[in-house]
Amino acid sequence: MKDEDKDMSLVEHITELRKRVILVLAVFVVAMIGGLFASSYVIDFIKSVEPAKSMAWHAISLWDGIRIYMQFAVGISLVVALPFTLYQVWAFVKPGLKEHEQKAALRFIPFSVVLWVVGLAFAYGVVFQMAVYFTTKVNRGLGLTEIYGVSQYFSFMFNILIPVSLLFELPVVVMFLTQLRILNPRMMKKLRRFAYLVLVIVATAITPPDFISDFLVAVPLILLYEFSVLLSARVYRKQLDKDKAWEEEFYGKKQEHPV
């Protein structure tokens, strides 16, 4: 009987997961359809500001126009569907969390969306602008005639925007792993030198090969790591306080915990 209950519970669990995946896909498709209509406005805006304003775009392939519309539609749908997707993930794991863990995890959703938007703004306003300036300068220095294909231009842009914006989700990931007691601030401090090295390598990989560009991108990423350490310490202290309260309640004594 117990095995049957477990089997039924597993079936219900899978059914619940399938339902939420279908909801996420439905929202994504609807948002993508809306993104097709909004794409033209976003593209017109990008074309009206630098660096695209001073460029002449060309279609290298017959599919370039359609490809660009689809890329922007998918990008817009990801931004729209992200909060809903995170909420569905939270709702799925909610039954297995304690009440305070449910509230803490729910607060991650708006925070992660804000970081995603900030990451996109930083990627476009800083990293992408520097990359275009550097590559254009090199091309002109070689005496090349600049004929930019619209598909290549936006592919270049998205290849920068997506990785950088994902890096800005680091604080949310750190808080979540700390909440699960997989990570803690002491561990992050011990890994600080290694983390700095990795972030500098990442900054070097996504920026033009000059010191100023690398510096302007590496410093915000390092500050983001230090911000993640502070958030991890905050979550960790709350966990220690709750552990102490539990020990006092059941054992009637206090135990020291290193922070």
Rank of each mutant, 00 (worst) to 15 (best):
R193K: 14
L144W: 09
S155A: 11
S213F: 01
L82Q: 03
A121Y: 09
D5E: 15
Y251W: 10
E226T: 08
K190F: 09
K2S: 13
K6S: 07
P208R: 00
F215E: 08
W116R: 00
L36F: 13
L161H: 02
K2H: 12
V127G: 02
L144N: 13
T145Y: 09
K254R: 13
Y69R: 07
M157Y: 06
K137T: 13
L221E: 02
L183F: 03
V200T: 11
L161D: 01
I46Y: 10
L199G: 03
I212R: 01
E12M: 06
K238T: 07
D3G: 07
L221I: 03
D241F: 03
K244A: 10
W57I: 11
E247D: 08
M130S: 03
I222D: 01
L82D: 05
S39D: 04
P83E: 01
P209G: 05
Y196F: 14
I68W: 01
P220E: 11
I222W: 11
K47N: 12
M175I: 08
P83Y: 02
Y41V: 06
L86H: 02
H257F: 14
K47G: 07
E256L: 09
A105T: 12
D214N: 11
I201E: 05
P171D: 05
S112Q: 04
V229K: 01
M55A: 14
Y196C: 04
R181G: 04
V93F: 14
I76D: 07
F158H: 03
F45P: 03
S155R: 09
L144P: 02
V79L: 15
Q129Y: 12
M8N: 12
Q255F: 07
F215N: 03
V174C: 05
V229I: 15
S9Y: 11
E249R: 10
K53W: 06
V127W: 03
S9E: 15
A26Q: 11
F168L: 02
A233E: 08
V138A: 08
Y69D: 13
V132A: 12
A26Y: 09
F134T: 01
I182R: 08
L170E: 06
